[in-house]
Design a protein around this nucleic acid. Structure first.
Lengths: 167, 167
DNA sequence: TTCATAACGTTATGTTATATCATTATCGAA
DNA sequence: TTCGATAATGATATAACATAACGTTATGAA
């Protein structure tokens, strides 16, 4: 049985129907924002779509360039504000180790849709997969409990080689 | 009994004898570099000392400013090269979530002195404490094993409030 | 001493991110 | 419907973080 915390084969995704992948993300984002009374404007929606171009993290300036190619002059704050909104809604995560952004595959699962996101990042194919692991979560909360530390934010990014890239 | 993985009370350090803290770090660094045949030059030693000014992460440009105040013209590469050396030797860690650097409290414990460093970072007092937690390590390696992922690098940084700052 | 290499200096530039203020859009209340 | 408050976006400038490239100096081994 698959529990919600399992990750079946996170890097076995190449070849999947990415168009539907994007559509799912956008539809989900619409639903979440509607439910919350937040505005997924055309710009924000487009930025989210660009973040979802693939399963590799995308730099803010990559998105900026894409936007510029379709709208002419666009300045960095335009992109950063959209990304900030999307992160706030839990629709996008920032990967600190790469200074880049990636779409969240399971947004809105929590009460407010924001959750601690943990990543496996393949240094060869560039794919980053969000994982949820009960043992990891447990170890972290026990560590926090033992040290009396109140966690507000988690940056957990494991870089290396995915199974497919280890050949 | 305290095992080497325990952290007694990581944030209960204010008031400690920080001068001896720095000295320990510098002496340790000298010993490690000597053993490895690496050169802890005056510049590198001084940068390490500046990183150890406190237990809060220090930005590269903070170090640059300090160096400039004591040596006149110093350019960014001077600082970044020294930091790169110190990181390579496991004497300093970079905190990706803060884009800042902090001295390693347990350098040279591994074969090559480089280890996965996990941090608790207090958003109030700014203190960052390196922790080693067997359960966390175990959860991570099981996660890697289960997904067939070969970890090369870990970025694990937990931000929040330390016990003392939760009042 | 000479050579090879590592360390450092110097200049320039690349990359990521934000502050600030003006303008436009949205939406509820009068 | 118009007004006014607020949110979103546009636009300009600059801050903050980092590295490429190349020349010079120091170091240590042959």
């Amino acid at each position: 049985m698959m529990t919600s915390g399992d990750v079946e084969s996170p890097f076995a995704m190449p070849g999947h129907d990415h168009a539907s992948c994007i559509m799912t993300a956008l539809d989900g984002a619409e639903a979440i924002c509607a439910r919350r009374g937040e505005r997924l404007t055309p710009l924000r929606r487009r930025v989210l779509e660009l973040v979802w171009r693939g399963h590799s993290p995308v730099g803010a300036y990559d998105i900026l360039a894409l936007l510029q190619s379709e709208r002419g002059r666009v300045a960095p704050p335009t992109v950063y504000r959209a990304l900030e909104f999307l992160c706030r809604q839990g629709l996008v995560h920032r990967l600190d180790s790469l200074q880049a952004f990636i779409g969240c595959g399971q947004p809105g699962n929590d009460g407010d849709g924001r959750h601690a996101a943990h990543f496996l990042i393949c240094q060869d194919c560039g794919t980053a997969v969000e994982v949820r692991d009960g043992q990891l979560d447990g170890a972290i909360s026990r560590l926090a409990g033992r040290t009396g530390f109140a966690i507000a934010d988690e940056t957990i990014e494991l870089s290396g080689l995915c199974a497919a890239c280890q050949s």
